[in-house]
Design a protein around this nucleic acid. Structure first.
Lengths: 341, 341
DNA sequence: GTGAAAGCGCTAACAG
DNA sequence: CTGTTAGCGCTTTCAC
């Protein structure tokens, strides 16, 4: 503990306090090179005593190294992304890299801005959600000269590396499972988000697989904002009033799916006999609900982990041969709301 | 769009491309000082063409200014903290400040480490959750010489400024409401987190207010890990089997409270007649559940906003007289699980 | 309006 | 093992 200082301390202050050269102080503080145990201790205790905190700004400029990994995601309130972050963290914790998070709110222009801001700090790598970016953003990523991993989605061409699942395939698989279970009158509910490309791709894959069997979606609805659980309720009620012949409801995420499920249970509707249900994501929350909603795991943790590993490996040795296109395979959980066949 | 470069571009590159001095290029790019419209355009287009991204590291070192606000929170998976972040963001968006988030996992030593890391980037301000920190962390905050706002909790003495609610009072208020409604056999369930000081303080306030009326908690249980909703179910079942005479259950957060509620509904137990329930936080999720759980809003958005305002105001003018101790008052939502009296 | 010089606090590279 | 020198890429300051 020291008295409050107006000016933050510098290496020089520690150097003067110890009589050791700045350079040696720097070596001690970074654990670099050989320093005698005696001076080591002297420096360490002085630094601690003074309350010295190194200036990474200066260090980064001098060494041309910044141990930051920029992580750019659409949202923090989705639960999906914090989990990806957790995966990233779990890997980076064992390195000297640190994640720095930027949020885009699903807006391409904001993504571009956030990316620019982050790149201006010269991070060592970038992990960014999705494959769709503005022209300028893609150009920046290309020009950055650092490892770039695009995550979540593998339906497209990455700038550099990519890790994720095929959402198109995920939609198709769910459609197949639903058809196989015998449902034919299918409704869809999702977010009104033209910019959520992954939800869009799932939807496309879904309708495509239905079409292959001559089935067409009977009703659909989109929402935006509000509590997803509450929206799921409302929309489900409305849709069933509008299209009472529906026998299956596919939701673009588990939260609205859970809302729908709770509504149907209130109405004493037989699930999955009269109506089947499925969501997407495999959120942990589902486990506490009265019934388990059918869903599909998005492999979020694994995606984060893999992405971080790719960055770390490249940084460790730029010549390492690593798999740059990693496609994970989500599995269906049938739960209690989709007949198993 | 340019060809890929190994070396990132510098001001000098733009300077050479335009024939304008580095200094003037810098002025244009920062919108500082007077520059003729002609050179302005020339520089701007060249910079864009080349794909120049300024190096903030160098800029920060030279100007001794970093437009970053360090935000240090215990967790991202709690939903509470992302909301505080949203509040912070909403204010900082209108300034040139940028939040940078660090996560501590409720561990004091990790908080200390994260704080050290962040301070070493010389941010312009710090927003940190809670009032309890290690000795060293407090010393760093003191020595940093930048505005510091401790958020969430106001039961204690801040290093500099603080914004939050009194969790002790929140616990007391809820206890009073419960007693007033006529419940006497009260059980408590919460997280097994000695380090979640806010949950602890709520519990203390709660028992204290009960004690004042001669009431003692009849049963209690603590959990850790797992899906909160599922845990709420399990624990509620166990507790009621153990203590069937309970007529009220107070949960330390809404998620386990919701789990408990769903369990009781499964059991066709009369809520709030036979058993009343209450949680804490006012999470949006609750709105979609079959019944609305009684809860108390933690003012998360407002806390974030106010904290960011304090930082921004201090930075804008260090001599501004501002309120450094802001205590917000949470309100009880009775919902459908706590009798109103 | 524009430019030249002098650092910001640190580390790479070398010399002892 | 320790110290010296020369920048990193930018901005501040001052001169023109």
């Amino acid at each position: 503990m020291t008295t409050d200082n107006k000016r933050p301390l510098t290496l020089r202050d520690v150097s003067e306090a110890t009589g050791v050269s700045e350079m040696t102080v720097s070596r001690v503080l970074r654990n670099r090179g050989d320093v005698s145990e005696k001076t080591r201790q002297k420096v360490l205790s002085a630094a601690k005593e003074l309350g010295y905190v190194p200036n990474k700004i200066a260090g980064a400029l001098a060494s041309n190294r910044v141990n930051l990994v920029a992580v750019i995601i659409p949202s923090l309130s989705n639960m999906v992304f914090p989990e990806v972050l957790t995966g990233i963290n779990s890997v980076l914790e064992n390195t000297d890299l640190q994640p720095v998070v930027g949020v885009t709110d699903y807006q391409p222009e904001k993504e571009e801005k956030v990316l620019y801001e982050m790149l201006s700090w010269r991070p060592s790598g970038v992990i960014i959600a999705g494959l769709e970016h503005t022209e300028a953003a893609r150009a920046m990523l290309n020009a950055s000269g650092i490892p770039v991993v695009e995550v979540m989605d593998t339906d497209g061409k990455p700038v550099d590396a990519m890790v994720g699942i095929s959402h198109r395939r995920a939609g198709r698989e769910m459609a197949k499972a639903i058809l196989k279970a015998g449902y034919r009158n299918i409704g869809f509910m999702g977010t009104k988000m033209p910019l959520d490309h992954r939800a869009r791709k799932r939807f496309e894959g879904f309708t495509e697989a239905l079409a292959k069997e001559g089935v067409e979606i009977m009703d659909r609805a989109f929402y935006s904002g509000g509590s997803a659980l509450a929206k799921g309720r409302e929309m489900t009620q409305e849709m069933l009033e509008r299209s009472p012949e529906l026998d299956f409801l596919y939701y673009s995420n588990d939260m609205i799916g859970a809302g729908g499920m709770l509504y149907l249970m209130d109405q004493k509707i037989d699930i999955p006999g009269q109506i089947g249900l499925a969501g997407f994501n495999g959120v942990e929350l589902l486990q506490g609900l009265p019934r388990q909603l059918a869903t599909m795991d998005a492999c979020r943790l694994e995606i984060g982990r893999k992405a971080a590993e790719i960055i770390a490996a490249q940084l460790d040795n730029p010549d390492t041969e690593i798999e740059k296109h990693v496609t994970l395979t989500p599995t269906i959980t049938f739960g209690d709301t989709l007949k198993r066949r």
